[in-house]
Design a protein around this nucleic acid. Structure first.
Lengths: 244, 244
DNA sequence: GCTATTGACTTGTTTAAACAAGTATGTTAT
DNA sequence: ATAACATACTTGTTTAAACAAGTCAATAGC
């Protein structure tokens, strides 16, 4: 439930842009006009607009106005620069999702794991392997490692449902920042064993490092997607003011 | 040359974090301390900090402070949520880069192109195919389409050097927003013809839609990377204030 | 007719202030 | 000892104001 004013305005403008009340290539009402409409200060309006600009919804033009550059997306896509769980993504794309836990153990981080995941050597971890089904097809293979101290009481039953739901709603922990690296890697024996592969010899791999509200990295995830069901969206803005 | 105060502070803090003057997991000086140090208002400090948070350098904790969560990167990576040209990326990663233009023609957008690129039907375009070499190996195949009206005077010679350099420094146009979609696709005949493929049957594909300062989309790019030389970085922050 | 200037808009940057709210560390009262 | 409270921090939100700077159109002067 958004209580902050800028959040409310941000979401209201976002919906109006998505519904094309403010169509592609048109200008938004000027900041001063929005100030009158929402009965708030110009700073608050500017904060909402800058959030929309970051997501590629609008683009401000000095002396002119704020242009809408949002266009409806083309196909089912998996992430848009936010942090979404598998469940949330599937739901948003209108797909039937299910999960099978194929491994659930505990282990202690050694040198090799520390190098790959960033967990200090000696950390006690949960190690989980899951197969994700979309509309009945085995398409995604997930490997998760959680800091045991941060996610106590994890069970295979929770893993089969939604770990994020457990973390946020049951444990009350807040997930804040996630660093992700996308690569394309050759298929492994586990991919072949668990997934419905169509003679692809590569997988789209998203490696994620997730931090909680204390700034502590508590999760490493490797998510291996069958190429034809993978799509990753991103909006970049060119930094001004480079040296020279 | 950054003249804005918040830019200066942002870059100064960024460098200090990268040099680990503010080490991983430590807190930055409090906002009020930074206000004294930089002789500016708290808002200006907060703006610089929020930019660092967006890039995954720091994370603010209500009532506690701002924690550094930056860690030096692992390997050669190709993009970090900014807009970088091939030249800039290669330079940053210390690689020898060269480019061969294999096609340079003009064409008019038809229904099929409009669907794929978003250019309106009838737009006059430059159509360019380029092979990118890193340390002598043909690894990337680029397909570019530019709105002719926006990038007048483009030549194969410019394409062989750096189109972005031409656009920004010669034409004086500013690139602001770029929307990108990452997918993994099967190799094409052109990939086989031009690139050094190592029995991969997929390519990492980045499709980009670039907008200039007028909010006009003037470029569509498809960049096809050999999987083992591809790495894409991203930092996401979980939005607070979801409905219920 | 053409150019230059003015003025009314727009967004961009910065400051100062006030208050809310979360955290940690005391001290006090039981 | 322990619980409750006070208080001195921290970051988070919002306002109001001033000025800078870019755009655009109408107007004045030649």
């Amino acid at each position: 439930m958004p209580k902050a004013i800028f959040q409310t305005i941000y979401q209201d403008l976002k919906i109006k842009i998505e519904e094309q009340q403010y169509p592609f290539q048109q200008l938004l009402p000027s900041e001063n006009a929005l100030v009158e409409h929402y009965h708030c200060s110009r700073n608050t309006i500017r904060r909402a607009i800058s959030m929309l600009a970051e997501e590629g919804y609008v683009q401000s033009m000095h002396g002119i106005g704020v242009r809408v550059i949002y266009q409806p997306v083309r196909q089912t896509s998996f992430t848009i620069g936010g942090i979404e769980s598998f469940q949330e993504s599937a739901c948003r794309n209108g797909l039937t999702a299910s999960t099978r836990v194929v491994q659930f153990t505990e282990l202690v981080s050694d040198e090799h794991i520390a190098e790959k995941t960033g967990f200090p050597i000696g950390s006690e971890l949960y190690y989980i392997q899951r197969v994700r089904y979309l509309n009945g097809k085995a398409l995604i293979f997930d490997i998760n490692m959680f800091l045991k101290a941060c996610v106590p009481g994890l069970t295979p039953e929770i893993a089969a449902h939604s770990i994020y739901d457990y973390i946020e709603n049951t444990l009350g922990m807040t997930i804040v920042t996630s660093k992700r690296i996308m690569t394309v890697e050759r298929i492994t024996q586990a991919d072949e064993k668990y997934l419905d592969l169509n003679d692809f010899n590569c997988m789209a791999v998203v490696s994620g490092y997730t931090y909680n509200a204390d700034g502590l990295m508590f999760e490493y995830t490797q998510s291996r997607h069958r190429p034809d069901y993978f799509c990753f969206q991103d909006t970049a803005t060119r930094k001004q003011g480079y040296p020279k």
